[in-house]
Design a binder for these strands. Structure first.
Length: 185
DNA sequence: ACAATGATTGTTAGG
DNA sequence: CCTAACAATCATTGT
């Protein structure tokens, strides 16, 4: 019955500061580029994604290592492609099944991880190579996906002004409304 | 540091 | 105080 906490979330809705704007009278397209420092809230709104519950829920900061805590913060990076599993992880997938059959009682990650690590070290290269192949293949996919992601991230504007429920500015030079594209600083 | 895995532990909010 | 809900923790190797 307990509901997710929502009121303790910090409301940092305050700042969106305009850094610079240029009149596009000489530009070929009627588009104004605005460079601002956008808030997290606006970024979410522009992407059309709801603020996740993980962010609304207050962090358990009691025993977090400072490094990890910092990492977790930076980790919230939208839909960035995830790191693919390593060869060992693919082997772990198979190993778990076999291990579960032999010892159905042991489900602890520590024990399985230890057992799997020992087994992995005893394996020959011929046995491992199949997992290496999968891993390298996945890594290649990941690299291309990451390259695409970076490319799109660089090119794609963060938001359009109309998404922010603001009216478009009127340009007296061209006598037209200007689409304002907002990039992050 | 971080990727997957799940049982366990810890923390929080609300009734 | 109790309980539901959920985040962090634990270990392992490779990149």
């Amino acid at each position: 019955m307990a509901k997710k906490a929502s009121k303790s979330r910090k409301d940092r809705s305050s700042s969106t500061s305009v850094a610079s704007a240029k009149c596009p009278s000489t530009a070929s397209t009627h588009q104004m580029v605005l460079r601002i420092k956008s808030s997290e809230k606006m970024r979410k709104a522009a992407q059309g994604s709801v603020v996740s519950e993980r962010e609304t829920r207050p962090k358990l900061k009691s025993r977090l290592k400072s490094k990890q805590q910092l990492k977790k913060k930076t980790k919230i990076d939208a839909k960035m492609p995830k790191k693919p599993p390593t060869a060992f992880f693919y082997f772990l997938e198979d190993f778990r099944k076999e291990f579960q059959e032999q010892n159905p009682d042991i489900k602890s990650m520590r024990d399985i991880g230890k057992a799997c690590g020992e087994k992995w070290k005893t394996m020959t290269y011929e046995e491992k190579v199949k997992y290496y192949d999968i891993a390298t293949e996945k890594r290649a996919e990941f690299d291309t996906a990451m390259a695409d992601y970076n490319k799109r991230k660089m090119k794609k504007p963060k938001m359009i002004l109309s998404m922010m429920n603001k009216s478009k500015p009127w340009c007296w030079c061209t006598r037209k409304c200007i689409d304002v594209v907002v990039y992050d600083l």
